[in-house]
Design a protein around this nucleic acid. Structure first.
Lengths: 340, 340
DNA sequence: TTGTAAGCGTTATCAA
DNA sequence: TTGATAACGCTTACAA
C-alpha cells in the first residue's frame, strides 16, 4: 500500500539501507549530500511515511510512553495530560493514555496492554497507597510518578508540595480569625488524601489548634461523598467556623452540606478547596482554593521521563516538587461568632 | 529481554508457529487442547507479553485509532474521549490522542505522525469548515467525524442534532415570553458554530421573530471572546431580553458582559448555553443549557469505527445523530418589560 | 494436529 | 560513501 524504503530505493537505483540512512537525521551525515536531497525529494513525492512498527521492532524502542490516570473526566487531569502530550510529542514520543477508575484489577489489565505495545516507560498518576504493581514495573522500565511519593521505594516523581499548599490554606483561615477548623479528607486508600490529612494535622498543631475535627470522604473524591461526610462533621462539631477540604469536589460538597444545615458560605462557614479546577472561580460562592500547576506537573513529568529515556548515563534520582499557591476568592471570610 | 514465542516453543519442544496458534484465541481451536493449556501455562510462568509491534508489522494492522481533537482542556472533550477510550479498549484497540489547537499546520503534522504509527483509522473531532486534509485521508483509511457533517463528502459521523438542540432552547425562551432574542455565535471557521447560527435563524423565523440580533465571537469559543461580542450585541440592541449562546463558555462570557452593563441574569437578561459542561449547574447563576451526551458521542463514534474496521462487507454509510436535551436552570426567567 | 518457511519494513553491522 | 545481509517477533499459507 504505502511506499516503503525499498520503493524509494528502487526508483532511485539505490539500496534501501542508503535510503534509510539518508532519511534518518542521525545518520544523514554518512550519506552524500546530493543523495540526501534526491532521497528526500523522492520520499516527499511518493508521500513516504516511515513505518514506526517496523522501526520499533528492529530497535526495540517504540517511542511511546504509557500514561496511567484514574479518570480523564476528573477535571484535575486534562491539564496534566495536556502538559504530558505537548512535551512528549515535541520529542517525537507518543503518549498512550489509559484510565483505571481507581480499580486495581483494571490497572493491572491496562498496564499489561501497554506493555504489549512495548511502551518505553510509564507515567503513573494513580495514587493508591499500596501498590504492588509498582515494584515489579519499575524494575523493568523507567517509571515516573505523579502526585505521589513512595514510602518504601525511591522513584522519580513530580508533585505539588502538599505540605506547603495545606499550610497556605490553614494560615489563611487562621489569619481570618478561625480557630475551630475542620478537615474533610480524601479517601483513605489515596496517598494524596493521606498526605493532605497529615499536613493538616501538622499545621494545625503548629498553630496550637485542635486537630480533632476531621473526617474522611468514604468512597471517592466526589461531591456526593463529601455531602455526607461534611454533614456528619458539622453536626458532630457545631462550633466549626471553617473547613479545609482535601480537593475542590469535596469543598463543593461541603458547601452543599452546610447549606442543608442552614449555614451559609462564607458568612457562617468558610470553605477552602484544593486544586483549583476549571470554573472554580465561577461557582457560587467563588471558591478559595489551593492552585496546583496542572499543566506544569504534566510537562515536568514528561521531561523527567524523557531524560530517563534519552540520557546515556544513569540519571540521578529526581523528585520534582512544584509549589502551589493560594487563590483567595469568595468562599472564605473573617470569622464571626458562630450561632448559638 | 522479554520472553518471545520462540522462548516458549523451545522450553516446550514445540514450534513457534504452534505456540502462536495456541495463544491466539482465533486459532486456538486448531491446536490440541492439551497443548493449548501447556502453552498457556508456560506463557504465564515466563510472563510472556506479546509484541504487538511485531504482530502489527506482520499483519499490517496496528489495532490503534487516531483521535484528533482541538484541545483536551476544553471541558467538552474529556467526556467524549473517555467514551472513545472505553469502547475502543474493550475491543482491543488503543486510541492515540492528539490536540490541534485548531491550527491547520499542527493538524497536518499530528496526522502525519499518527500515520507513521500506522493507525487503522481516524476519529476526527476538529470542526473547521474547510478541510482539505479530509478528502485525502478518508480515501486511505476509515474516518469517523465527530460533531461535524460534511457538506461535499459523505462520511460516517456522530453528532448531536444541533437543529433540535437550538429549537429546544429557542422554544424555551419564546415560552418564557421573550421576543427580542439575540445569538452569540461561535467562530465563523467552525462548522458547529455555523450550524448553530443557521439553526437559530431558522427557528426564529419559524416563530416569526427577527433574526437580526446576531454576532459571532471573533477568535475562539472562549469566555473572553464572548465578553466583547456580547457587550457589543447588547449595546447595539438594548431591547434584547434573552440571548442564546452557541456554547457554555460563550454563555458565561455573555452573562459577564451583561453584568458589566448592569444587567443582571436572569432578571434583566435570560441566557442559554450549549453543551452542559461539568459544573455548569454550580456557576452563578446555574446555567440553563442544551445538554449533549458527551460520553455517548464518544462511544458511538468508537463503535462506528470498530464496525468499519471489523466488518468484512462494506458497511453502509452511517451518520449517527444523538438527541440533545434542554436542562432548565437559573439563567433563564420569564420576560419582564425591559428597562427604558 | 504440528512443522516449515517466508516475509512484514526497518536498522545495524560489516564489507566493499 | 554505498551495498549486502541479517535480524527484530510475529503470522499464515502450505506441507507433512
Amino acid at each position: 500500500m504505502a511506499a516503503t524504503l525499498k520503493d524509494i530505493a528502487e526508483k532511485l537505483g539505490l539500496h534501501p539501507a542508503t535510503v534509510s540512512r539518508a532519511l534518518n537525521p542521525r545518520t544523514a551525515h554518512l550519506v552524500n549530500a546530493g543523495t540526501v536531497t534526491r532521497v528526500r525529494r523522492a520520499a516527499e513525492s511518493m508521500s513516504y511515511v516511515p513505518n514506526s512498527m517496523a522501526a520499533g521492532l528492529r530497535t526495540s524502542r517504540s517511542h511511546t510512553v504509557g500514561v496511567v490516570i484514574p479518570d480523564l473526566t476528573n477535571p484535575l487531569f486534562p491539564g496534566i495530560v495536556r502538559g504530558i502530550q505537548d512535551t512528549l510529542s515535541r520529542a517525537g514520543y507518543t503518549p498512550l493514555m489509559v484510565n483505571t477508575d481507581n480499580d486495581a484489577d483494571v490497572e493491572a489489565q491496562v498496564v499489561a496492554s501497554l506493555r504489549a505495545r512495548r511502551v518505553d516507560g510509564f507515567i503513573l498518576a494513580t495514587a493508591r497507597r499500596e501498590h504492588p504493581l509498582l515494584v515489579e514495573l519499575s524494575s523493568k522500565l523507567p517509571v515516573v510518578l505523579i502526585n505521589r511519593v513512595t514510602d518504601s521505594m525511591q522513584l522519580p516523581s513530580v508533585s505539588a508540595d502538599n505540605q506547603h499548599g495545606i499550610r497556605l490554606a490553614v494560615d489563611h483561615l487562621v489569619g481570618l480569625g478561625h480557630r475551630e477548623i475542620g478537615h474533610v479528607g480524601g479517601p483513605v486508600w489515596s496517598s494524596t488524601g493521606h498526605e493532605r490529612a497529615q499536613s493538616f494535622a501538622r499545621t494545625m498543631r503548629a498553630h496550637g489548634l485542635s486537630t480533632a475535627r476531621r473526617i474522611n470522604a468514604v468512597d471517592a473524591w466526589s461531591i456526593e461523598s463529601a455531602r455526607d461526610a461534611a454533614r456528619r462533621l458539622l453536626v458532630a462539631n457545631p462550633g466549626i467556623t471553617a473547613i479545609l477540604a482535601a480537593n475542590d469536589q469535596l469543598a463543593i460538597g461541603t458547601i452543599e452540606a452546610a447549606r442543608s444545615l442552614k449555614r451559609r458560605c462564607p458568612q457562617d462557614l468558610s470553605v477552602v478547596g484544593y486544586n483549583d479546577m476549571p470554573f472554580m472561580d465561577l461557582v457560587d460562592p467563588p471558591l478559595t482554593t489551593v492552585r496546583v500547576p496542572q499543566y506544569d506537573i504534566g510537562s515536568e513529568s514528561a521531561r523527567l521521563m524523557l531524560s530517563l529515556l534519552l540520557e546515556q548515563e544513569a540519571t540521578p534520582l529526581k523528585q520534582v516538587r512544584l509549589t502551589p499557591e493560594l487563590v483567595v476568592r469568595g468562599s472564605t471570610a473573617r470569622r464571626r461568632a458562630p450561632r448559638a
